[in-house]
């Protein structure tokens, strides 16, 4: 699949070929500004690729919109809705009766440890809680395929590690397939079954790492030699692009 900017001049994504199977956790790792978010916008159906095809559960073209749960970098919780109403939003939009959607939201919030905050407004939650609520909303909107775009990017490092463990637990209890964007090498390797390492713009897959490490994977896994060898390989490919380090940074669109 290819994608060029609307003006058709600069290629953003080139020969991008990735796939996610049932209940797989797959990460897309790349330098900031390489077009990772564009990739997700295409998969979610917000924009169409210039060439090529995206198939979600057998549906392509406009049929795929609404099939993926898409969590963007910002939690985008609406300040005018309670936490429960925010979490239920995807289902309400999809035509579930409001009360049924709200019940489902309460149930998932209970499981995510946010039960007592269901009737609070989002501004009353901490950063980590907001991300959990946003993930609950994503899960409820589409339980099978989740696109997570740097969901923990704005969190402090400790909260981030805790959120990773929590996400792995949540994912293992579900049937979901997850496609995860990050520019944190450790995060990608710790979480994923497979990591696609992307190049600078125009982004293409530099290498595919099949991460065969046992699950569950605690924090300390980052200290094992096996982990280090995956990390070395990922870093090597991240640094071989035309403009190593600060070569051709571009604002993410």
């Amino acid at each position: 699949m290819n994608f060029s900017s609307p003006m058709g001049t600069a290629a953003v994504l080139q020969d991008m070929n990735i796939s996610v199977g049932h209940h797989e956790f797959v990460s897309v790792l790349g330098p900031s500004g390489c077009g990772k978010s564009t990739l997700f916008n295409i998969i979610a159906g917000l924009i169409e690729p210039s060439e090529g095809k995206v198939t979600v559960d057998g549906l392509s073209d406009s049929g795929r919109i609404g099939q993926c749960g898409y969590m963007m970098q910002r939690d985008l919780l609406m300040p005018w809705k309670t936490v429960a109403a925010n979490v239920a939003l995807g289902r309400i939009v999809k035509g579930y009766p409001r009360s049924e959607a709200l019940n489902a939201a309460r149930k998932i919030l209970d499981r995510y440890g946010l039960g007592e905050y269901a009737d609070h407004y989002p501004n009353q939650l901490s950063g980590g809680m907001r991300q959990r609520a946003a993930l609950a909303r994503t899960f409820l909107a589409a339980e099978e395929i989740l696109l997570l775009d740097e969901p923990f990017g704005a969190l402090d490092n400790l909260t981030r590690l805790r959120m990773q463990s929590w996400l792995l637990d949540v994912w293992q209890d579900s049937e979901a397939s997850i496609l995860f964007i990050t520019h944190d090498v450790d995060e990608a390797i710790r979480l994923s079954d497979r990591v696609y390492v992307l190049t600078e713009r125009p982004a293409t897959v530099a290498v595919t790492l099949e991460v065969g490490m046992e699950r569950p994977r605690p924090y300390e896994i980052v200290l094992t030699p096996e982990f280090a060898s995956y990390k070395t390989e990922a870093l090597n490919h991240l640094h071989t692009g035309a403009g190593a380090l600060f070569g051709s940074e571009q604002p993410d669109s």
């Binding site: 609404g66 993926c68 309400i92």
Partner: peptide
């Protein structure tokens, strides 16, 4: 981005208007 989020849910214009 809130409107984009609504679109990923498959929301139509009326729903985006009402909810956002």
């Amino acid at each position: 981005q809130m409107i984009q989020l609504m679109r990923t849910f498959g929301a139509n214009r009326v729903q985006i208007f009402r909810e956002v």
